[in-house]
């Protein structure tokens, strides 16, 4: 229990951020027309690639001889970057189609 409380105190700002972002997220996105369901999903999907930042930090903080950490980090960067670039590019392609049609 003590360790949990200690963790809570150490991470207080992050926990505030967590809760407020949840509320903000629901407020900002709540009303989505059907036409945008797929682009929103795929755009949000690209944003979830933000996890790549962790992979970059992992590699930078590793020793140059630590092949395990470097290997995992590089795998992480590849996965994250595919998610980010692929996600944004595919969303843009979709939205470009929607745009063309406006009368």
């Amino acid at each position: 229990m003590d360790t949990v409380l200690q963790f809570f105190n150490e991470q207080l700002i992050m926990i505030y951020l967590l809760i407020f972002t949840i509320i903000l997220g629901f407020e900002v996105i709540s009303k989505v027309p059907t036409v945008l369901h797929t682009p929103l999903m795929s755009g949000a999907n690209a944003v979830s690639g933000v996890v790549i930042i962790g992979a970059i930090l992992l590699i930078r903080q590793a020793d140059s001889g630590d092949v395990l950490q470097l290997g995992l980090g590089t795998l992480g960067v590849i996965l994250g970057m595919t998610n980010v670039i692929g996600g944004f590019a595919v969303t843009d392609r979709m939205l470009e189609m929607f745009k063309k049609k406006k009368k």
Binding site: Q11, M14, L17, L18, T21, I22, L24, G25, F26, V28, I29, S30, V32, H37, L40, M41, A44, N45, V47, S48, G49, V50, V51, I53, G54, L57
Partner: peptide, 27 residues
């Protein structure tokens, strides 16, 4: 992604991840 943000104490990972979580939940 948000949980990984907590591991690294990185705010933007947390914010990005939670927003995606919210969007996914709404859908």
């Amino acid at each position: 992604a948000a949980a990984a943000g907590l591991i690294y104490g990185n705010q933007i990972m947390l914010v990005g991840g939670i927003l995606v979580g919210a969007a996914g939940t709404i859908l």
